[in-house]
């Protein structure tokens, strides 16, 4: 108990929990739009493809300055997503295949470069592999401050463009005929997804970042049919996962933050899928049985009646 209290009052823990909690909130909100627009897989590609960018940025600059590393991540992520779009548009290869080819080759390149870096004699080299699984404890106050500033900007934009993003996510073609430049809306949406993913790389890691984007949205959708409520719930689920995951990984030693956050999130997703009062597995099963029984009863009654007439 005392240990827990000590942890909660620990300055580093507070900073890190603030960071991952806010990241979860942001992922929930942005991820809801990404899944509604069916673009969540692009987030997956972006985060995996960020790894070689991180490694190359380190090789070029020679130090672990987060801004440069994330800059490298951004560039290689963008190259990969552009490559995917280009391949699926210009060649006969379908989008999902193009995505998995590009995603895994970039990720493979990233792993090769990281292994190479680990063999270098450079005191700075240690710790780059945190980007694979995420290590939230390495978040600095300045990292969290940057995340808060950019994230707040994104949330304000979501509020300002509430109706535009809603109608665009629902029906982009109609949105265009209303006179809105859908290219601008698409750019804003993509930029929000990209920024969220890039900010998640340090604490959640390249492999599991897309889970933090998709999970809260999927869970939240189970509980409401209103976009506003879904967004708030998704933000809440993401935040709880972030804080709880950070907490658990801080208690033990050598527990990476990313997987822990995603495990907490998976639990929320699972509960939502099973127990949601409208869309959950249980209620659907109950309804199905009820209907079946009602039909059987109807048919039996009909048979009885016709038998009576026959007599």
């Amino acid at each position: 108990m005392e240990q827990l209290l000590a942890l909660f009052s620990d300055y580093t823990f507070q900073i890190v929990a603030l960071g991952t909690g806010f990241l979860g909130l942001l992922s929930g909100v942005v991820g809801t739009y990404a899944t509604l627009r069916k673009e969540s897989l692009l987030g997956d590609a972006l985060s995996h493809a960020a790894l070689p960018g991180i490694a190359l940025a380190f090789l070029l600059i020679g130090k672990k300055d987060l801004v440069y590393l994330l800059g490298g991540a951004l560039i290689s992520g963008l190259i990969a997503t552009a490559l995917i779009q280009w391949i699926s548009k210009k060649s006969t290869v379908k989008f999902d295949n193009a995505l998995s080819v590009v995603l895994s080759s970039f990720f493979g390149l990233g792993l090769v470069l990281l292994t190479h870096i680990q063999g270098l004699e450079n005191a700075n080299q240690a710790g780059l592999e945190k980007f694979i699984y995420g290590q939230a404890s390495s978040m600095l106050l300045s990292d969290v401050q940057l995340l808060l500033a950019v994230g707040a900007g994104i949330l304000v934009l979501v509020l300002l463009l509430w109706k535009e993003l809603k109608v665009f996510a629902f029906d982009p073609v109609f949105t265009q005929t209303l006179g809105f430049q859908t290219r601008i809306l698409q750019f804003i949406l993509s930029a929000m997804i990209i920024l969220t993913v890039i900010f998640g790389l340090e604490s959640v890691g390249v492999i599991l970042m897309s889970a933090l984007l998709i999970g809260p949205a999927v869970a939240a959708r189970q509980w409401s049919d209103r976009l506003g409520v879904v967004l708030i719930l998704a933000g809440l689920f993401g935040m709880v996962s972030g804080v709880a995951g950070t907490f658990i990984s801080s208690i033990g030693r050598q527990i990476p933050t990313g997987p822990t956050i995603v495990l907490v999130l998976s639990l929320i997703v699972m509960i939502s899928l099973i127990f949601s009062p409208k869309r959950g597995l249980i209620i659907r099963w109950v309804n199905q049985r009820r209907k079946k029984k009602a039909y059987i009863k109807q048919i039996e009654e009909k048979q009885e009646r016709s038998e009576k007439y026959a007599r």
């Binding site: 509604l36 629902f170 073609v173 109609f174 409401s224 976009l227």
Partner: peptide
């Protein structure tokens, strides 16, 4: 538009 063009499971 043709009504098959949107996701009718959209939360709205």
């Amino acid at each position: 538009p043709q009504n098959s063009s949107v996701d009718w499971d959209f939360p709205t």
